[in-house]
Structures are given as structure tokens and as C-alpha cells.
């Protein structure tokens, strides 16, 4: 994971995104402890207050919870939750920018459908 100063996304959001990704891919399994603020802060050289802010986003989204005196744990069902959230964001994050660029290039809906079909069949063959 690389944290970038090239701030199109604030660092605390990058932190929350990376942690979410780690949960989604199973690197941080459900009901297991995630690394501490100190560990994350030192590994990626980020201010601990920023790390905490990123972690709190995950708490708010119900993905992690605190066990007093132990640390943060991944909630049961967190992966499924992330999948739902990502499905909800899919249009906003991927389809909208695609349509914006298509508009600039005068691509019709039909052109787009063809392109998607072609990519999908190429990928299936590979």
C-alpha cells in the first residue's frame, strides 16, 4: 500500500480505503484484530491523528469495532457489507466518469455496449 501526497483524495480517506480493501480481500479476516494506530502510522509514515480519523470512518460504517483494552476488530459480515457499499457506489465511481468521457468523444450508447461486449469477450478468451 502506498499513501500518496498527491491529494486528489485526503490521506485519512486513503487510509480508510486501504483498510476497507484489506478487509474485502480477506487480508484482515472477520473477527480478527486489525493493526493498531501506532503500527499503521509507523508503517506508512502517517500522523496518528490522521490514521485515527481514517479508522473512525470504518467504525461509522460498521466495519470494525473496538474491544476495550485490546484494539480494533473486523466485524462479522463486514465483507458482505463492503460488497453492498461498493455495488451502491459502482455507478457513481465507474459509470459516470465513463459516460463523461464518452460524451466528449461522441460515443453513442450503442458504441459503448459494443466496446464493453468486446472487452468482456477478450477477457474471457485470455
Amino acid at each position: 500500500m502506498e499513501i500518496s501526497n498527491d491529494i486528489q483524495m485526503p490521506i485519512f480517506m486513503q487510509v480508510s480505503e486501504k483498510l476497507t480493501d484489506a478487509i474485502f480481500t480477506g487480508a484482515f479476516a472477520e473477527e480478527t484484530q486489525i493493526p493498531s494506530t501506532t503500527e499503521i502510522s509507523m508503517t506508512y509514515k502517517i500522523n496518528p491523528a490522521t490514521v485515527l480519523k481514517g479508522m473512525n470512518l470504518l467504525v461509522d460504517q460498521g466495519l470494525i469495532y473496538k474491544r476495550r483494552g485490546v484494539g480494533m476488530f473486523v466485524k462479522q459480515g463486514a465483507r458482505e457489507r463492503i460488497k453492498t457499499m461498493r455495488n451502491e457506489d459502482f455507478s457513481e465511481k465507474f459509470i459516470k466518469p465513463l459516460l463523461d468521457e464518452a460524451k466528449k468523444l461522441d460515443l453513442s450508447a450503442e458504441d459503448l455496449h459494443k466496446l464493453i461486449d468486446k472487452e468482456m469477450s477478450d477477457e474471457a478468451r485470455a
Binding site: T37, T38, S41, M42, T43, K45, N47, P48
Partner: peptide, 13 residues
Amino acid sequence: RDLFYRLLLDSYQ
């Protein structure tokens, strides 16, 4: 330098 930054965060925490 990388080590220094990480230890600085260790020191601060």
C-alpha cells in the same frame, strides 16, 4: 530517512 520518520512517529506515540 525512512527509518527516522518511522521512529519519529514511535517517539511521538
